[in-house]
Amino acid sequence: MLWLHRFGSLPYFYRISRPIALALAVPGVLLAAYGVYGGLVEAPVDYQQGDAFRILYIHVPSAWLSLFGYTSMAVAGFVALVWRLKLAEIFLVAAAPVGASFTFLALVTGSIWGKPMWGTWWVWDARLTSELILLFLYLGVIALHNAIESPRTAARACSLLALVGVINVPIIHYSVEWWNTLHQGPTVTRFGRPAMEMDMLVPLLCAALGFTLIFGWLTLWGMRAQLLWRERRSRWVKRLFSDG
């Protein structure tokens, strides 16, 4: 447990977060670039969807990160509420805008893909609707954090909101699915997903891993900024900047 306490020390975290962020950024960008390049250029054309399926290489990693981001925020929120770990609070606050951006990206790419595939930008499909509500959950956390002045109180309030939200995410998802099946509109037939070819799958996995590393990098960078702002009156931050 000793390393955990050391990691919880804010100046120590500030010092080591820079190399960690770089260690995430370099392979992250390389993997994402390879994945996107492999997906956009090298992967074979899909026999049903033509070239339009290639947006998948952005869409799927973003959608994955939208869920991963919210879950990790809720875990951090739990840690922050139970053990009052400052770093967990800062993580939660820093991850919210990054996660919200990926959620937005997933929605936008999904709708661009939907135009040629379904013939419309937006379908009230269960998955789309729950992704949209997830975006609102993210925005709620961000708005609450902006509204409350004291950073400590704001972060703790956001922790609780993220926890309440994460309990609701599955309920919302299944209720939306129920609503959609009850509301049997024009059936959007999901083409049975053919088992992916290896030369399609490998770039996708690389892109997903790369995007995840980029998520970690951006969040860590946000944490550093958040940390400096919160501790701006403390001695170690002042010393950090007085040296030049």
Binding site: G165, N168, I172, S175, V176, W179
Partner: peptide, 12 residues
């Protein structure tokens, strides 16, 4: 913004 997303299941 905080509570309407959480109201979705009840609404549905």
């Amino acid at each position: 913004l905080l509570i309407f997303p959480l109201y979705v299941p009840v609404l549905i």
